[in-house]
Nucleic acid binder design. Sequence first.
DNA 1: AGATAGTTTTAATGACTGTTTAGTTATTAA
DNA 2: TTAATAACTAAACAGTCATTAAAACTATCT
Lengths: 252, 252
Amino acid sequence: METKVNESGFRGLDKSLRIQKITDTAAELFHRKGYRSTTLDDVSKELGITKAALYHYVSSKEKLLSRIYIQALENIFRNTDKIAGKELPPDVRLRLIIQNHIKGIIIQSISMFSVFFTEENQLPEKEFRKIRREKKKYTRIVEEIIEEGISQGLFRKSDPKLQAFALIGMCNWVYKWYKPGPDSYTPEQIADYFVSLLERGYLKGDMEGMQDMPELLRGGKERAGSKKEDYQRLRAKCTELSKIIDEMEEKG
Amino acid sequence: METKVNESGFRGLDKSLRIQKITDTAAELFHRKGYRSTTLDDVSKELGITKAALYHYVSSKEKLLSRIYIQALENIFRNTDKIAGKELPPDVRLRLIIQNHIKGIIIQSISMFSVFFTEENQLPEKEFRKIRREKKKYTRIVEEIIEEGISQGLFRKSDPKLQAFALIGMCNWVYKWYKPGPDSYTPEQIADYFVSLLERGYLKGDMEGMQDMPELLRGGKERAGSKKEDYQRLRAKCTELSKIIDEMEEKG
DNA sequence: AGATAGTTTTAATGACTGTTTAGTTATTAA
DNA sequence: TTAATAACTAAACAGTCATTAAAACTATCT
């Protein structure tokens, strides 16, 4: 008999494919149960082989985790650098980055990014630092695009770092709630929606209130002068409101 | 001699305070190293007592985790229900919810919420389900406010669930990047900034583009009208707000 | 068939760690 | 003072699990 193909789903696969399958399976289990709580027995059982057999493909559990991190990193960065370097207006670039980010998470695999976002501290010191560096780099890219947008007068004045965190957080959190399925959102829908929300906000109307963001900006202290006092005032009132409510609660 | 107070930072504390200290310390370590990777030796060493001594206060490691979840839940929900139930316009309620959410995470303790967001799968089945239910409930509250905002014509048409996820993700992610410190943002700053970004988006100008969100909406197809919806609405809203505030002042 | 390399298994090893037991010391109440 | 209870410790128990060693199986090539 010739080479059995697709026998048990693992044997009879190219070696590189087998390694990929191991990585994916591990990611899936790490995602469901956590890295530390997942035993190599779990992984091997899921694959239909013995624990010891794993060691033919991966030299240690830690190495398995590393592999997941490397892949996740590659998948997010694959297009990011290109997009960021394109000769496009900042808003377009930002939009592309967001789309790429969300598609990356959902299409590549939620499990992989779930691990990527939560198991950092299980990595050996050296890798840990590398990952942290790369994540910061990514934030920095987003931040720079935002800065450009502001300096070109395309975006409202704001704190670019905070805005980058907001944007990235919104996108990353997808891994927490997204459940694939036929009636589920497509990555494109989510990305479009997020872009739309981020670009123009959820408030309707508002015509002339076109000032910049509040003045808690980077540089800091420039008190809210007595500008056209519309949104600013509203905002101030809300803060007041918040205080008043707190006081009332305390009283009963 | 009377009761020694503040001897070693643990002994000579009210019992309830000692338990609280244990919980906090555990949360801190779980946050840094992960629940599973943190041994009870770690926790007890950090507290300056023996592993076995822990068992005087907590019946198991799992129970320790539960305690953290319960506290986190209480701290987020303490005000949420009240806010959601208030007789205030949706945008104000949403703003308050966001402020409360972010303040909760940062002030209460990042560690606690870090654990809250990442160690669910370490809980016993029953508690796991309970937590999931509560988290969904929270999302639902936000969603409902958004729905109201839309039906009152205050918010653009959109998919409330997706918007709730976006908002919550943005806020939750704070636990990943926030580092307390003197030159750090205050919770209020972050909350204000996020609200501002969410309400009006980062794009500047754009005058006439006042349509609703794209039509990937829940119910689906009603194309975004192009109404003129001017700043009468804004003014009206401010008036509303003023009234409410006045009423509240009168009452207390 | 025999050899070689690649693959998988069985069976240990050894470290780690949640939990328990039995006992010690400190504090409180009577 | 004495009895009782609370707070703690040291040591062992029992189970888990990553990792290794050595043997066996499979396929391919000659």
